[in-house]
Design a protein around this nucleic acid. Structure first.
Length: 473
RNA sequence: GGCGCCGUAGCCAAGUGGUAAGGCAGAGGUCUGCAAAACCUCUAUUCGUCGGUUCGAUUCCGACCGGCGCCUCCA
């Protein structure tokens, strides 16, 4: 069984193999740092995290690039509205993005190129396109890409067979572009751009990069640096980027290099709220820090997302999140139980067999276009059967722990361990001792009173044959 | 108008041309002083509707109903 991924380019699930195995070059469209990213944005970043981790689990050496769009229409507009310079406005949001990423346990990319720091590469790309005769200057002084010169334009989004909705892109730029579908590579500097410091000199005029140009230039620059290639193995993003963003990236990059830009295009579906996509525009969004401040365990968010396939819409609700939280708790209980058992018994045994069966299914599920819901089902089956086996005194826990650890390196959905200061730990130990004493003397009223006291402090206790255990909830 | 996606139990959600994974919630039971955790049993004769193909369809085809996305620098 080998990894197969759905490629938007072919609209099929295809066997995946990198160009220069074991190295995999992965470029994922990062956030636009005009504001806080919401958890809909993070659904895509989490899907990419799953991809990244499964590639690593599969033995590949992934080089992951995620750009930061720190200059575009929205960042400029937001900076101007705040009366700040562009970098002044975006810096806190970059910082916040990294904090949110860490909260959600997303593996950091190897590089985070910023648009504002990659302008020379963008200028060079435009010059290359000018040399190739596919770029031109419009009447308004901006540089445009001539899609008429790029015959395969529309291959990704199947645009070749579709018509543009009248008025959508046509009207406003009718007199500046040769073809209404041509898109801006470089936008002539406007007063607002100068005001916030978002304008650069270029041989073809002072201005700023178009959004699509940014991603092409940054990805080509980074894979050139790290891997001396001009073709990405995988390029990923949200479905809304298929057109025009990724279509335009392909046009620019391939027109300039003459080589395929990316071999696999992966797109994650939206996070919805009552059926409609989560969006800043609709005001129906929630940020990662909102969840963090509510005390939501990131593991619950991850499990919630894993339980729906990445190419399917997922409706976000507090109920769904709570259900995932309960699942995370169950996983945590099982993991701790297996860990406790590793001291006893042999490496072989029923538990080891179950774990081996699980790992086969786990791998095959993720190999099948990252079918995380199936992988989770296998995981919970292991929990169920493993618990039953442990109840029956099975051995093999050490082997099972190894398998679990490998699976968790991909899914990472174990409950966040809460840190306890020694003073609190001492107090809890004292209370439990007092309760045990009461229980031994059959003073259950007092025992229950102490338990209530602990519960009030968020301490959950459990009486087992080998004594009372506790955890913070 | 063009391109595309989705509709499976109370909720969430996999899946396959041969008779429905998993999670949450719920009911009963075992264990427990009581709990908790865990286990056992139960909870869709049925996969939006109607047709068609087939020995057989939830799965393929068509129509319809319902929900949604992109075509406006949205993950």
């Amino acid at each position: 069984m080998t990894l197969a991924l759905y490629n938007t380019l072919t609209r099929r699930v295809e066997p995946f193999a990198p160009l220069a195995s074991p190295r995999v070059t992965l470029y994922t469209c990062g956030p636009t740092v005009w504001n806080h990213a919401h958890i809909g944005n993070f659904r895509t970043f989490l899907f990419e995290d799953l991809l990244r981790r499964h590639l690593a689990y599969s033995g590949y050496d992934v080089f992951h690039i995620m750009n930061l769009t720190d200059v575009d229409d929205r960042t400029i507009k937001a900076a101007a509205a705040a009366g700040k310079r562009l970098d002044e406005h975006t810096a806190p949001f970059v910082q916040a993005f990294f904090e949110d990423r860490d909260y959600l346990r997303i593996t950091p990319a190897h590089v985070y190129p910023r648009a504002t720091e990659s302008v020379p590469a963008m200028v060079r790309l435009v010059e290359r396109l000018l040399e190739r005769g596919v770029a031109y200057k419009g009447d308004d002084g901006s540089m445009y890409f001539a899609i008429a010169k790029f015959p395969t334009y529309g291959r990704l989004s199947r645009l070749d067979t579709r018509e543009l909705k009248l008025g959508a892109r046509v009207a406003s730029d009718e007199y500046t572009k040769d073809d209404p579908r041509d898109f801006a590579l470089w936008k002539k500097a406007e007063p607002t751009d100068e005001q916030v410091g978002a304008a650069w000199d270029a041989p073809f005029g002072r201005g700023r990069p178009g959004w699509h140009l940014e991603c092409s230039a940054m990805s080509l620059e980074q894979i050139g640096k790290c891997c001396r290639t001009e073709t990405l193995d995988i390029h990923a993003g949200g479905v809304d980027l298929i057109f025009p963003h990724h279509e335009d990236e392909i046009a620019q990059s391939e027109a300039a290099t003459g080589k395929p830009f990316a071999r696999f295009w992966l797109h994650g579906e939206f996070l919805n709220v009552r059926g409609t996509k989560m969006s800043k525009r609709f005001g129906n969004f929630l940020t990662a820090r909102d969840l963090r401040d509510q005390g939501v365990d990131a593991a619950a968010v991850r499990l919630l997302f894993w339980q729906t396939h990445y190419r399917k819409g997922l409706d976000f609700s507090d109920e769904a999140l709570a259900a995932a939280g309960a699942g995370v708790k169950r996983l945590g209980e099982f993991y701790e139980r297996v860990k406790r058992e590793t001291g006893n018994g042999k490496r072989e045994g029923r538990l080891a067999d179950l774990a081996a069966k699980f790992e086969t299914e786990f791998r095959s599920a993720l190999d099948d276009d990252l079918n995380a819901p199936r992988a989770c089902a296998a995981l919970f089956e292991l929990v169920h059967e493993g618990n039953a086996a442990l109840d029956a005194g099975a051995s093999g826990a050490a082997a099972a722990l190894g398998v679990l650890d490998r699976a968790m390196a991909v899914l990472d959905v174990l409950p966040t361990t809460k840190t306890v200061d020694t003073e609190l730990a001492r107090w809890i130990a004292g209370r439990i001792a007092a309760r045990d004493k009461a229980r031994r003397s059959k003073d259950f009223k007092e025992a229950d009173r102490i338990r209530a006291e602990l519960t009030a402090k968020g301490v959950e206790i459990e009486d087992t044959p080998s004594g009372t255990t506790w955890r913070l909830v």
